[in-house]
Design a protein around this nucleic acid. Structure first.
Ligand SMILES: [Zn+2]
Ligand SMILES: [Zn+2]
Ligand SMILES: [Zn+2]
Ligand SMILES: [Zn+2]
Lengths: 159, 159
DNA sequence: GGCGGCAATGATATGATATAACAATATCAA
DNA sequence: TTGATATTGTTATATCATATCATTGCCGCC
């Protein structure tokens, strides 16, 4: 669960980062997979903000301290982090975001602000059950889904 | 409205194409925009099937009869068709699909079969109202959304 | 400790998707 | 006809992602 329920509001973001990295270490230990230095560094970079970040922006950051970093370096780390439920891809932006609900089985549901760029992950039963109902009505069996809602976050509405 | 309520089922698809092109001509006339030969041809190519098709696949098709076709040719046509509500982009596939509900104001909701590739556009109030409720609960005001549901269509479940 | 197998990373190249910028042409109303 | 605007042509480049093979690091086993 996220440390802040509304990432667009000011908050002590260093706690978000610490929490995310701590949880990631736990999860990886539980799953017996290796959260290597590169992978952890990339996860840390993704958690630098609550805005989805592109692979090449990550690469640029990573390359500052890791001279050998090339596109495959990043994409491999991203694949690992996705496979282990630590990040999500925002399909409509070709960008990546730290998962705010690590551990649970879920597909992403995102509220993405068109002004400040912040993406908030939510996990609303009403949404998933509506999808389930609508799909069933068409004889369709859900395996996964992409939900990306664009609009104005509470903070940016007040500007 | 679509001629078939379940595009994965066998049907006379030439009617889908005719209907889509006919509606497009009407809409463009109403809106006083020009459905040029290239644009109409691209729309026809998109409607060759109910599977989302990528820009470069379209380009390859178009180039058969239109030697001068280059990436901008396709992307301009795609932009026009999107702007006028005649096609949708499937974000998770970087591919394009004919709109099954031209005329009405709507964002897309898609059921995409992971076996046969068919994408069915739906427009379910229960989905949009669930999104609205969930967003409001987080103080978020919706402008648009991306809904792409992956799974098995009725036909492919029976295989 | 040394060996062998496998996971991870390095390195190079290329594929796939999308747009910028400017020139040439077509359309259409005045 | 002519000028304004939309469309298309053309070239180049930006952006996103993966294939392939070599090398290195990790770890259990002898
Ligand atoms: Zn934070
Ligand atoms: Zn905002
Ligand atoms: Zn059809
Ligand atoms: Zn199917």
């Amino acid at each position: 669960m996220p440390l802040t329920d509304s990432p667009a509001k000011p908050h002590d973001h260093s706690l978000c980062i610490e929490d995310a990295l701590g949880q990631a270490r736990l999860i990886c230990e539980q799953r017996n997979v290796r959260l290597t230095a590169i992978r952890e560094q990339v996860l840390g970079l993704i958690w630098q903000s609550h805005k989805p970040i592109g692979a090449y922006d990550l690469l640029e950051q990573l390359a500052k301290t890791h001279h050998a970093a090339k596109p495959p370096t990043i994409y491999r780390a991203l694949e690992f982090l996705q496979d282990n439920g630590l990040i999500h891809k925002i399909e409509s932006q070709n960008a990546f975001l730290g998962c705010a609900h690590v551990g649970g089985h879920h597909h992403g549901q995102f509220l993405i602000c068109t002004i400040c760029g912040t993406a908030q992950e939510i996990d609303e039963k009403i949404v998933s059950s509506a999808l389930e109902n609508a799909s069933q009505a068409h004889g369709f069996r859900i395996q996964s889904f992409v939900i990306e809602i664009k609009g104005l976050c509470a903070t940016c509405q007040d500007l």
